[in-house]
Amino acid sequence: MTRERALAAAVALADAEGLRALTMRRLAADLSIEAMSLYYHLPGKEGLLDGLAETVIAEISAVAGDEKGDWRARLRQRFLRAREVMLRHPWAPALIGSRASVPPSLYPYYDEIVGTMTEAGFSAHLAHRALHAFGTMPLGFVQELFAPVAAGGATEVGDAEADLAAMAGALPHLTAMMAAELHAAGDPTLGWCDSQTEFEFTLDLLLDGLERARG
């Protein structure tokens, strides 16, 4: 029994059944060990969740580093590879956002991103602004502003449409936008607003704008 084996089993359980199914007792049962043995490697539920976040970030880091092209192409490839990891683990964005501290393995990952920009002629000031603009995109997802419908079936869609109709009088422009996007959100996503199309559109917009600012 090792910490790595326990975390690999935790990732597999979360992938199959979601984070809600992941408890110390359930994980110990899946590993065919006593729960107290698991605590030796992972100190409680928060330690388990911290370990899960570290594991996903390590997976992102492992697929980065061999990008080709100019700085825009390299960062684009890196962020899209990170997104592939997140799509394999759709519970990971919410988990990473819930951690009380920054996982240590994120620092070298972001150091490489900043290095890519400074090697291309970015000042430290502009690289800092770029990180603010990117937000969570280097990790392969974007945080949502609105989520009128949960991932699921027709009942949730019907409820969302009723809510939008009730909002229309007070918020006509926002409601019209959300109604249009509600019907368009058919591709595999990490959330209602976080479709692959929207992710790539935003990423390309930012990269092109930063290239102009760099010049």
Score class of each variant (00 low, 15 high):
Met1Leu: 11
Thr2Lys: 14
Ala8Met: 11
Ala9Met: 13
Ala10Met: 06
Val11Ser: 06
Val11Met: 10
Leu13Cys: 02
Leu13Ala: 09
Asp15Thr: 13
Asp15His: 06
Ala16Ser: 13
Ala16Val: 08
Glu17Cys: 03
Leu19Phe: 07
Ala21Thr: 08
Leu27Met: 02
Ala29Ile: 07
Ala29Lys: 14
Asp30Glu: 15
Ser32Phe: 11
Ser32Leu: 11
Ser32His: 12
Tyr39Ile: 07
His41Ala: 14
Leu42Val: 09
Leu42Met: 10
Pro43Arg: 12
Gly44Pro: 02
Lys45Thr: 13
Glu46His: 13
Leu48Cys: 08
Leu49Ser: 06
Leu49Asp: 10
Leu49Pro: 00
Asp50Asn: 12
Gly51Cys: 02
Gly51Thr: 01
Leu52His: 04
Ala53Leu: 08
Ala53Lys: 14
Thr55Pro: 00
Val56Asn: 01
Ala58Asp: 13
Ser61Trp: 11
Asp66Leu: 03
Asp66Asn: 11
Glu67Lys: 12
Glu67Cys: 05
Lys68Asn: 10
Lys68Phe: 05
Gly69Ile: 00
Gly69Arg: 02
Trp71Ile: 03
Arg72Tyr: 07
Arg74Thr: 03
Leu75Arg: 02
Arg76Val: 05
Arg76Gly: 14
Gln77Pro: 00
Arg78Met: 09
Arg81Gln: 08
Glu84Asn: 06
Met86Cys: 09
Met86Trp: 03
Met86Ser: 04
Ala100Val: 00
Val102Trp: 02
Val102Thr: 13
Val102Pro: 00
Pro103Gln: 09
Pro104Gly: 12
Ser105Cys: 11
Ser105Tyr: 01
Pro108Asn: 10
Pro108Gly: 07
Val114Leu: 09
Gly115Glu: 09
Thr118Lys: 13
Ala120Tyr: 08
Ala120His: 06
Gly121His: 06
Ser123Asn: 08
Ser123Leu: 08
Leu126Cys: 07
His128Leu: 02
Leu131Thr: 07
His132Ala: 12
His132Ile: 10
Phe134Pro: 00
Phe134Val: 01
Gly135Trp: 12
Thr136Gly: 05
Met137Phe: 05
Pro138Asn: 04
Leu139Glu: 12
Leu139Gln: 14
Gly140Phe: 08
Val142Asp: 00
Glu144His: 03
Leu145Cys: 08
Leu145Glu: 11
Phe146Thr: 11
Pro148Ala: 02
Val149Ile: 11
Val149Thr: 03
Val149Ala: 10
Ala150Val: 00
Gly152Tyr: 13
Gly153Val: 04
Ala154Cys: 05
Thr155Tyr: 08
Val157Arg: 15
Gly158Arg: 14
Asp159Trp: 14
Ala160Tyr: 09
Ala160Ile: 02
Ala162His: 09
Asp163Ile: 07
Leu164Pro: 00
Leu164Ala: 10
Ala165Cys: 04
Met167Leu: 10
Ala168Gln: 14
Leu171His: 11
His173Ala: 13
Thr175Cys: 04
Thr175Asn: 03
Thr175Gly: 03
Met177Tyr: 08
Met177His: 04
Ala179Asn: 01
Ala180Arg: 15
Glu181Asn: 07
Glu181Thr: 02
Glu181Ile: 04
Glu181His: 11
Leu182Thr: 00
Ala185Cys: 13
Leu190Arg: 09
Gly191Pro: 01
Trp192Cys: 09
Asp194Lys: 01
Asp194Met: 01
Ser195Arg: 15
Gln196Met: 09
Phe199Asn: 04
Glu200Gly: 00
Phe201Trp: 04
Phe201Arg: 15
Thr202Arg: 15
Asp204Thr: 07
Leu205Trp: 12
Leu205Ala: 12
Leu205His: 15
Leu210Ala: 02
Ala213Leu: 13
Ala213Asn: 01
